[in-house]
């Protein structure tokens, strides 16, 4: 690790000032410290934001409010999460390990870096780490990589589970920065890699995630997060799907669907949602709708299986959601 200083921010205002002057926020640290040890991340000033009053989890009417410093494990078991948006708890519990969930903050979870092996391999080209150096995964080990939203420069998936659920539920995030405060959909936090894979998110310099708001949804209890992976726990998704459905006598009135492990960012599937509208919750119907998810998919040498696995995971997630009374 290269030397750095660390200071405790006593207030949000002072934290933002320190970040505007070039400091990096640290909360749980589970991504950042790991990457600093590998010297993939090389900040010289850390701002410890853990003392800021952003650990709240509460209901505001039908909405669920989650402070950016609330820990994954706390959000997962909170009565308001379980009551208003149980799929958020399910997605959180399917991520990381119990120890890491006790450490990782919600804001940090959304901003975690990719798990492409080449990103942390200093002797391998990686456009995300060194712009213009090339992508080792395109012709290398790419079993876990994306089939949607990729470019010739990068095909790494965003690894967060809970971000998939938040995108399906149309959550918004409030951020504060040197220029003031703004609110936007969590979905818009993420950029596509395009020709600039080193730019991963849309935060402005110094901006701090303050809080996440998940709007109330009348049918949010009929929701499941299905994660397909190489082992039953403590593993990143090969494909994951968050499915939320409004059922009326076996007919889908509305559906919300987002997937992980498939795209270069948490991937909302609006075309599939539209295709499901007014359809019966039956295997053949679901399969036909789910097939549209992989239109335009660009598999690499090692991840063609995802073209099949993605629609199947979607179908199963919808069926599981439909089984909820």
């Amino acid at each position: 690790m290269i030397p750095f200083t660390i200071t405790q921010a006593p207030s949000t205002h002072e934290a933002i000032q320190a970040a505007a002057a070039g400091g990096r926020y640290i909360a749980g640290g589970t991504t950042l410290i790991d990457l600093m040890r590998e010297e993939v991340e090389r900040p010289d000033r850390l701002i410890d934001i853990n003392a800021l009053p952003l650990k709240h989890i509460r209901a505001e009417g039908p909405d669920l409010i989650i402070g950016a410093l609330a820990r994954m494990s706390e959000v997962a078991v909170h009565p308001d999460t379980r009551r208003l948006h149980p799929v958020i708890g399910e997605a959180l519990i399917e991520g990381a390990s119990p120890q890491l969930r006790n450490m990782a903050s919600m804001g940090g979870n959304l901003l975690q870096r990719v798990r492409c092996p080449y990103f942390r391999m200093l002797d391998a080209p990686c456009n995300k780490r060194i712009p213009g150096s090339g992508c080792s995964a395109i012709d290398g080990l790419n079993i876990g990589h994306a089939i949607l939203g990729t470019s010739d420069q990068c095909a790494a998936t965003h690894p967060s589970d809970v971000a998939v659920a938040l995108v399906a539920l149309e959550a918004t995030m409030r951020v504060q920065g040197p220029q003031g405060e703004r609110t936007f959909p969590v979905e818009e936090l993420y950029r596509l890699p395009g020709d600039t894979p080193h730019l991963e998110h849309t935060l402005l310099p110094g901006e701090l995630i303050v809080e996440i708001r998940v709007p109330g949804l009348s049918y949010s209890r009929r929701a499941r997060y299905l994660k397909v992976r190489d082992r039953a726990s403590y593993e990143f998704a090969l494909i994951a799907a968050a499915a939320v459905i409004d059922l009326d006598g076996g007919v889908i009135r509305e559906a919300r669907l987002a997937v992980g492990g498939a795209g270069t960012r948490p991937w909302r599937l609006r075309a599939v949602e539209q295709a499901l509208k007014g359809k019966r919750l039956e295997r053949a119907t679901l399969e036909a709708a789910a097939r549209t998810a992989v239109e335009g998919a660009r598999p690499l040498s090692g991840n063609q299986y995802k073209v099949e696995l993605l629609p199947r995971t979607i179908v199963r997630a919808l069926e599981l959601a439909g089984e909820i009374a």
Partner: peptide
């Protein structure tokens, strides 16, 4: 009281 992995946290963050 909470279990964590002590390798991924800085001692300086635990006053």
């Amino acid at each position: 009281g909470k279990r964590i992995v002590s390798c991924l946290t800085l001692a300086a963050m635990h006053s």
